[in-house]
Design a protein around this nucleic acid. Structure first.
Length: 479
RNA sequence: CGGGGUGUAGCGCAGUUGGCAGCGCACCGCGUUUGGGACGCGGGGGUCGGCGGUUCAAGUCCGCCCACCCCGACCA
């Protein structure tokens, strides 16, 4: 708790973000370089995110399991691109029990290798396929520059790892998961995303195809918010994951992996937040409504508390995640600001006047000042609140979508592209040549985000070199 | 690893020509307050990043080291 105000987003977006994460008590800096502590309020948000995803994964035939945190170093050397991609950021354990280890162990930066090793033991026949396993946990990458939630050394995620008999099935899986990620973004996080394929230079180390969902933050930078990879037989060959098909022929498996990380929380902060603080989507908010009793003396207190207790019990019973803030040491005004900063979608106030009139005062976090305020009857309040929460959920998505669409432009030439990516996304024809992509990156720091599945059709001229281009791509500066 | 910066109470900072280590917020206690960030009074809290040097005397001067932050390269 503190009464210092946040900097505005215009003043200093990075500082606004850092201070908000700390003040809202989502996370704190850990005494370990680049690591964070996710505090209870942040973890509740994470749990709500995971609960939804877990349900979707299970509904599509996936099961959960756990693999070791430590992975033999030699495993990483089995897939060439994978080791090249990850070796610069590995943390390595060299000693155990006071003795130097014969083979160093890597703290997992991702688990394709150890899971691939296990799959080779478990898979013998086409009857064993597909294997659809999700692991929930954390991984460690020795990042050089870190930022709470967006890029920490240790971060939390789920990683799905699947093995299939055919490339068609594996690709279907990759797309199925990306669709779940998209659905999550729209329906739960209220963040519009663009689904597409990563360019060769942006592909995951060891993947044949990497797909992603990309979201636009308030400062118009892009955030890759989820990825789903198709490996072909790359990892199957490296780890000897083979099965006998129906014709008694030995085949390599086709594998996938996919993930959404705690970075998603950073996206929620940067897409919805305003100068007052967080705005959490009701569907995943740890607290959907906060109840603030207001009174001046003991007589008023007993009447007010009687009403708030009743309202609290009713909303709780209706399944609304409600919090009663009956702290006596701070004023109502302080509480209003405090809970707004922490992004609670709806505030319910009950004071002596409301008790008299059998009403409550409501304040919507998604609407500024008076526009979001109303008085409603205490009768059937749970229904009113539920309805409002879904309205707020919808309005957050609507606002985020309008903002994104207003900041995507179609440059007429390369010069205009350079201007656009200063403060927005460019949607342009691209010939597919890595050299053109590299030139944009060098000139503007913007990278290709993805080649969206949704294409205008036809062909055009590459925005960089002018050669014929079959696809349009998003260029943006990324986190 | 390159460029820039900062280390003094939990946080933000001040500390002059070297001379009793301070301020604001937070925290604890008591009282008054409470419909948009309340106030009064009284308290507790320090290896001045570390080590070494100069000096009667070092937060302050000198040397070395360490940590962290910002900007690049890397990245979910």
């Amino acid at each position: 708790m503190t009464d210092e105000k946040l900097p505005t987003r215009e003043e200093n977006f990075a500082e606004w973000y850092n201070q908000l994460v700390l003040k809202a008590e989502l996370a704190d800096y850990a005494p370990v370089r680049g690591c964070m502590v996710v505090r209870p309020y942040g973890w509740m948000l994470w749990e709500n995110i995971n609960a939804w995803l877990d349900k979707e994964f299970k509904a599509t035939g996936h099961v959960n399991a756990a693999f070791p945190t430590l992975i033999p170093m030699s495993f990483f050397e089995k897939e060439k691109e994978h080791v090249e991609g990850f070796s610069p950021e590995l943390a390595v354990v060299t000693h155990g029990g006071g003795e130097k280890l014969e083979e160093p162990l890597v703290v997992r930066p991702t688990s394709e290798t150890i899971i691939g090793y296990m799959y080779s033991k478990w898979i013998k026949s086409w009857r064993d396929l597909p294997i659809l396993i999700v692991q929930w946990g954390s991984v460690l990458r020795w990042e050089l520059r870190t930022k709470l939630f967006l890029r920490t050394a240790e971060f939390y995620w789920h990683e799905g790892h699947t093995a299939h008999a055919t490339s068609e099935e594996a690709k279907e899986e990759m797309y199925r998961i990306l669709d779940i990620y998209e659905k999550f973004s729209y329906e739960q996080a209220a963040i519009p995303v663009i689904k597409g394929t990563k360019s060769d230079s942006e592909r995951f180390a060891g993947a044949q195809v990497t797909t992603s969902i990309e979201a636009m933050m308030w400062d118009k930078r892009a955030l890759q918010s989820g990825t789903s990879h198709y490996f072909g037989t790359n990892f199957a060959k490296a780890f000897n994951i083979q099965f006998l098909d129906r014709n008694n022929t030995l085949q390599y498996c086709e594998t996938t992996s996919w993930a959404i990380s705690s970075r998603m929380i950073g996206a929620i902060i940067m897409v919805h937040g305003d100068d007052q603080g967080l705005k959490l989507p009701p569907n995943i908010a740890p607290i959907q409504a906060v109840l603030v009793p207001i009174y001046k003396n003991l007589d008023e207190k007993s009447k007010v508390m009687e009403a708030t207790d009743k309202v609290f019990a009713e909303l709780k019973a209706a399944g609304i995640r409600i919090k009663m803030d009956d702290r006596e040491e701070v004023t109502p005004g302080f509480k209003f600001n405090d809970w707004e900063m922490r992004g609670v979608p709806l505030r319910i106030e009950i004071g002596p006047k409301d008790v008299e009139k059998g009403q409550v005062a409501l304040a919507r976090r998604d609407m500024p000042g008076r526009a979001g305020k109303s008085f409603v009857s205490q009768t059937a309040l749970a229904q009113t609140v539920s309805l409002l929460l879904s309205e707020i959920q919808a309005s957050l998505l609507k606002a985020a979508t309008a903002f994104r669409d207003a900041n995507i432009h179609d440059p007429k030439d390369y010069e205009e592209l350079k201007q656009i990516v200063e403060d927005g996304w460019a949607f342009s024809w691209w010939c597919g040549d890595a050299a053109c992509e590299a030139k944009v990156k060098e000139d503007t720091k913007a990278t290709t985000r993805n080649i969206p599945f949704e294409q205008p059709g036809g062909s055009g001229k590459c925005i960089v070199c002018g050669k014929k281009a079959e696809k349009k791509v998003y260029f943006a500066r990324a986190y």
